[in-house]
């Protein structure tokens, strides 16, 4: 009968009136954020960084600026450079994660935050000092070893540089081929002791 579908529509809206809202009131409540979330501020471990600048080369926008000088310890520790400048112009970053994908030494990670609004563009550049001091809550994006350990960047504690690496340098090849390594959970107890 004509008008029946209109009545049906009214019933649907009435039914939804009694449902619990699907939205939540930010900032009191937040929606769940997934561990792979590609967010702000980048997590960078100076101890792991070699200054190879793969990340800078791979960034589609060219917003990572790296200046290195040969480190005094270089001969002893291999091909390690000292970082003088490591700036990310985060106001232009599109959080594509290609820099993280390119970093061969598990040194750069996507962050997990999203509340880093600033009042001026100048403040938006992440300097090497900021990166050093930032809270290290790395996202598990493109870092299967973190994912396998079940790390949750929003809820978990900050990780130090020893906990985030992969066991084998061949990891990249294997990951690309999809042959997942049997990761043992990160040996957190051991590394805690070391850092203490």
């Amino acid at each position: 009968m004509y008008g029946l579908a209109m009545a049906k529509g009214l019933m649907v809206t009435l039914k939804n009136l009694t449902k619990k809202p699907t939205t939540v009131q930010y900032p009191e409540e937040r929606v769940k954020q997934h561990p792979r979330f590609r967010g702000e501020e980048f997590v960078w471990y100076e101890e792991r960084c070699t200054g190879c600048a793969s990340c800078a080369k791979y960034c589609p926008l060219g917003i990572i600026k790296i200046v290195t000088s040969p480190s005094e310890t270089a001969p002893k520790q291999g091909d390690k450079y000292r970082l003088e400048v490591f700036d990310i112009e985060i106001q232009r970053c599109m959080f594509c994660g290609l820099c993280v994908e390119a970093c061969p030494y598990d040194c750069l990670f996507m962050g997990s935050g999203f509340e880093q609004g600033k009042y001026s563009r100048k403040d938006m550049v992440l300097h090497v000092e900021d990166l050093r001091q930032a809270d290290k809550h790395p996202s598990t994006f493109f870092r299967p070893q973190l994912e396998a350990s079940g790390y949750d960047p929003r809820g978990g504690r900050p990780l130090n540089w020893r906990e985030v690496g992969r066991e084998s340098w061949r990891w990249h090849q294997q990951e690309k081929s999809g042959l997942r390594l049997e990761h043992s959970p990160v040996d957190t107890a051991g590394s805690q002791q070391e850092s203490n």
């Binding site: 997934h34 792979r36 979330f37 599109m94 959080f95 594509c96 994660g97 290609l98 996507m110 994006f141």
Partner: peptide, 15 residues
């Protein structure tokens, strides 16, 4: 979009 975030870390600009 939540599923996409789970998959690749972003909701709209997925790459």
């Amino acid at each position: 979009l939540d599923l996409f975030e789970m998959l690749c870390g972003a909701r709209i600009t997925v790459s």
